[in-house]
């Protein structure tokens, strides 16, 4: 989502502007990179000073942790620090994969994220297409405003709402269930319900928000194509299938790539809050495990190894999906 759209795909390099800079100064003088740098520094030295704090921020809080991930291959202890702790090779990875829990965690993580993708990916597209069909006016604006609102509610509050409404004794849902003559259900206490609760509450919260990007893409679809289709006698459904959907295809592909790239990084904060001892068999995912082993049990090296495994799978997925998307549709992140 951070890249700009261009004809036939998205290009990281041109978005960063390297080509223009070189072309411009290359005209009459043979210039070296060194010369360019010196010139730019003389002209912008104040700006170079200005970016020191933000650059330091990125080094300290993003890059140092990346290198700090080497403790996955060490036995980290506080006294010797990151550099001084002894190397142990793949020990922590072996420990993790030899533990039967590992496969349950991977399975839980994948099931949850695939389920989430299957629901929360198509819903915003459908909402945007529907909104695009109706006239501008009070109704359209209200639908947009109300569906967008839950995005602003915090995770803690969303989870509290879920817990309150699904409560076995006092929750509104169970009051309804009992009124219909059934036994009340302890929704959050049942492991097989956890995934649905997680995914559908996400759909409730984020569909309106995610639809914005598609609405913007739909606004950019050429109006003449609608007119032409209309004159040719295309029905509304045909126009959606043949004009709207191809028009927003680049946006769809990019969002899909990003979602798959984040497959293993699902809303961990929400999963953690929804967990209880009864649903742990489906709700324990890699990241909640990392948190518990690392921060709570202070098993730093072991949990870093698990986290690293997670990050690497993510990166591989992103690269893979991007390659497939470029093959199939000609669109990709890079």
């Amino acid at each position: 989502m951070f890249l700009r759209y261009e004809k036939g795909g998205i290009n990281l390099k041109s978005a960063t502007g390297i080509n223009q800079t070189i072309k411009k100064t290359n005209t009459n003088k043979k210039v070296t990179q060194w010369y360019l740098a010196k010139k730019s520094f003389r002209r912008h030295w104040q700006l170079y000073l200005l970016i020191i704090p933000p650059v330091l921020y990125f080094i300290i809080f993003k890059y140092i942790p990346m290198f700090g991930a080497v403790i996955a291959f060490k036995d980290y202890n506080v006294v010797q620090g990151i550099m001084g702790s002894p190397w142990v090779g793949m020990k922590h990875f072996e420990n993790f994969f030899n533990n039967p829990v590992a496969w349950d965690l991977i399975k839980n993580t994948l099931y949850l994220s695939l389920y989430q993708l299957a629901i929360t990916f198509p819903l915003p597209i459908i909402l945007a297409l529907a909104l695009n069909e109706i006239k501008d006016g009070l109704f359209k604006r209200s639908v947009q405003m109300f569906t967008y609102a839950p995005y602003f509610i915090s995770t803690v509050v969303i989870v509290s709402m879920i817990i309150l409404m699904l409560s076995p004794r006092t929750g509104i849902i169970n009051t309804l269930v009992e009124m219909l003559g059934f036994e009340s259900i302890n929704f959050l206490g049942q492991a097989d319900m956890f995934r649905s609760i997680f995914v559908w509450s996400d759909a409730w919260q984020l569909t309106g928000y995610s639809a914005i990007i598609y609405l913007a893409a739909l606004a950019g679809v050429d109006k003449q194509q609608y007119e032409a289709a209309k004159i040719d006698g295309a029905s509304r459904i045909q126009r959606i299938i043949n004009v709207d959907i191809p028009g927003i295809m680049p946006a769809i592909v990019i969002i899909l790539i990003l979602s798959v790239g984040n497959l293993m990084a699902i809303g961990f904060e929400k999963v953690y809050l929804l967990q209880n001892p009864l649903n742990l068999s489906t709700s324990e995912i890699l990241q909640t495990y990392v948190y518990k082993m690392g921060i709570i049990n202070a098993n730093f090296s072991f949990s870093t190894a698990v986290g690293l495994f997670n990050s690497i799978i993510n990166l591989i997925l992103l690269v893979l999906v991007n390659a497939i998307a470029r093959r199939v549709s000609g669109n990709g992140l890079w």
Partner: peptide, 28 residues
């Protein structure tokens, strides 16, 4: 005309692709 901005863009975009992890962040 700000020399090095291509590099700096890559420098920040890369942090979106790869995440060091919760524990190393905590240790920092």
């Amino acid at each position: 005309s700000f020399y090095g901005r291509t590099f700096l863009m890559f420098f920040i975009l890369f942090t979106m692709l790869f995440y060091g992890g919760l524990i190393p962040e905590y240790l920092v």
